[in-house]
Simulated scan of single mutants.
Amino acid sequence: MSESLIVITGGPGAGKSTLLDHLHQHHGLNVVEEGGRAIIRDQMARHGDALPWANREAFCQAMFEHALATRYRALDAGGLWLFDRGLPDVLGYARLCGLPIPKALLTAAQELRYARTVFLAPAWEAIYRNDAERRQDFMEAQRTAATIAEVYEDLGYRVLELPLCSLQKRAKFVLAHCPL
């Protein structure tokens, strides 16, 4: 059942969302969008502080809740789903920021599994851009990708790095390695 939940992860600005949008638009695959950006937009609109630059613990908790909810919704809906990050990403964020790791998060990351193969979009300086929601510098993007890869590997996932190539070639790479 969890083999139908495919994660595409990596550092910020590495082309994950663009790739997922392409796979949805051109191949009809079900996609779960990244929680972080949605949380940031919502918090900024409501003048909330669950933001990575304001209250990292609250932001981490909001990402955890989003990852749990979207995983359950995808399982309930059935079929193959591609995720822009998964529960282990939240664990990686907490590690990267030096936050205390809630037992519920650790347990969820260990027990609520995704497909064994996880796709990692490595930090890619040629396409990296900052914006209102992505304030990290490229060095932090590199550290994030490395930490996320380590977390998935520690949890027993096979991390398959996406090639640094065109969007179409990246999509073909994912499709060739997905359990379709």
Score class of each variant (00 low, 15 high):
residue 70 T to F: 11
residue 109 A to E: 07
residue 104 A to T: 14
residue 73 R to M: 12
residue 57 E to T: 10
residue 82 L to H: 07
residue 1 M to L: 14
residue 59 F to W: 06
residue 64 F to I: 04
residue 110 Q to C: 08
residue 81 W to K: 03
residue 149 A to I: 04
residue 128 Y to H: 10
residue 19 L to V: 10
residue 113 R to K: 11
residue 54 A to F: 05
residue 94 A to K: 03
residue 58 A to I: 04
residue 94 A to F: 01
residue 102 P to N: 11
residue 4 S to R: 15
residue 20 L to M: 05
residue 104 A to Y: 06
residue 112 L to V: 10
residue 135 R to I: 11
residue 130 N to H: 15
residue 157 Y to W: 05
residue 20 L to N: 00
residue 170 R to P: 04
residue 126 A to Q: 08
residue 173 F to A: 03
residue 85 R to C: 14
residue 97 C to I: 05
residue 5 L to S: 01
residue 5 L to Y: 02
residue 109 A to T: 02
residue 168 Q to M: 15
residue 169 K to A: 13
residue 139 M to V: 13
residue 149 A to Q: 12
residue 138 F to K: 00
residue 106 L to F: 13
residue 86 G to R: 03
residue 72 Y to L: 09
residue 112 L to A: 09
residue 71 R to T: 01
residue 14 A to G: 09
residue 1 M to R: 12
residue 9 T to K: 06
residue 80 L to G: 04
residue 35 G to E: 02
residue 165 C to R: 12
residue 18 T to V: 08
residue 40 I to W: 00
residue 128 Y to Q: 12
residue 123 A to E: 06
residue 36 G to Q: 02
residue 66 H to E: 15
residue 66 H to N: 12
residue 171 A to K: 01
residue 163 P to M: 06
residue 36 G to V: 05
residue 22 H to M: 07
residue 165 C to K: 08
residue 63 M to Y: 03
residue 178 C to A: 14
residue 115 A to Y: 01
residue 155 L to P: 02
residue 121 A to N: 09
residue 117 T to H: 03
residue 107 T to V: 04
residue 143 R to I: 00
residue 103 K to H: 12
residue 162 L to V: 05
residue 136 Q to M: 14
residue 20 L to R: 00
residue 21 D to N: 10
residue 28 G to F: 08
residue 95 R to Q: 14
residue 8 I to R: 01
residue 95 R to G: 06
residue 134 R to Q: 03
residue 92 G to C: 02
residue 175 L to P: 07
residue 144 T to V: 11
residue 19 L to Y: 03
residue 140 E to P: 02
residue 65 E to I: 07
residue 27 H to W: 12
residue 61 Q to D: 13
residue 9 T to H: 10
residue 36 G to C: 03
residue 134 R to I: 07
residue 148 I to K: 05
